[in-house]
């Protein structure tokens, strides 16, 4: 298992700066097989039953706590953690390889990408591909000048709605009250998202993980901090004649 102290990184990275990493021109040009070798065997598989499309995305996955937990809960779903910080991505990469080595046959369905999810989601995913998106403890960006760097905004929700399947769930959680309210009100006012009911929240296995799985969540719990969740479903536009 890699040691976190060898992968020290800054807490934040500017999402607006130009990328210095390769980005696929379009989704079908991206080769997922090297990320999921167990799902894409070298020889043509007999059964085509496996879903070879990434269905879950953890945006700003940090040290990867959530996808590691989700890997065992949904072993048939391919999922990707997206992280902008180079060193942190390296750590998660090593962590996944170590887990695959340690527990043979498990953790084959998770991977990590160094990329800027604010800019390049359509380069990786087709329309309606994702079933779940996670935004756990995003940077709060308190200054009004920096609100455009927030990962949940009306303009970006349009892009998330594009890559998400109808009925897909978007999870957000934060320990910053101001940001929690911002995310809730932004999602509430967006025509393509509706909140989950209390019952649905109760039965969703991922909800529990939001506050317990990640390093950031555990820290908040240790300090007995409050968390603010906003969990929404992607819906068809109310007055969309095409019905999408």
């Amino acid at each position: 298992m890699p040691k976190k102290r060898f992968y020290r990184a800054r807490a934040h990275s500017n999402p607006l700066s130009d990328s210095q990493f390769p980005v696929p021109v379009k989704p079908d040009e991206f080769d997922w097989s090297e990320h999921f070798p167990a799902f894409f065997p070298a020889t043509e598989p007999e059964d085509n039953a496996k879903d070879l499309k990434v269905r879950f995305a953890d945006i700003g996955c940090g040290f990867g706590g959530l996808i590691v937990k989700l890997a065992l809960l949904f072993p048939e779903k391919l999922m990707v953690g997206m992280e902008l910080r180079d060193k942190v991505t390296e750590y998660v990469k090593e962590r996944i390889l170590a887990l695959r080595e340690q527990y043979k046959g498990q953790y084959e369905n998770i991977t990590v990408l160094r990329t800027n999810a604010m800019k390049y989601l359509p380069n990786y995913f087709e329309k309606g591909q994702l079933e779940k998106m996670f935004f756990l403890f995003p940077d709060p960006h308190f200054k009004e000048k920096n609100h455009r760097r927030r990962i949940i905004s009306t303009a970006l929700l349009a892009e998330y709605a594009y890559v998400m399947a109808i009925g897909g769930i978007l999870y957000t959680i934060t320990d910053v009250q101001e940001l929690g309210e911002w995310m809730k009100s932004t999602l509430d006012s967006h025509p393509l998202f509706e909140p989950l009911t209390a019952d649905e929240l109760e039965t969703d296995v991922c909800v529990e993980l939001l506050s317990t799985a990640t390093e950031e969540g555990q820290k908040v719990e240790r300090n007995q901090g409050t968390t603010y969740r906003a969990i929404y479903r992607r819906i068809v536009a109310p007055k969309d004649p095409a019905g999408a």
Binding site: V25, K26, P27, P122, N123, K127, T154, L157, A158, E159, A161, Y162, H190, P191, L192, A237, D240, A244
Partner: peptide
């Protein structure tokens, strides 16, 4: 009230 529904992207450039 805004244009929220992205129909598609033309990617290739």
């Amino acid at each position: 009230t805004g244009a929220h529904d992205i129909h598609t992207y033309c990617l290739g450039h």
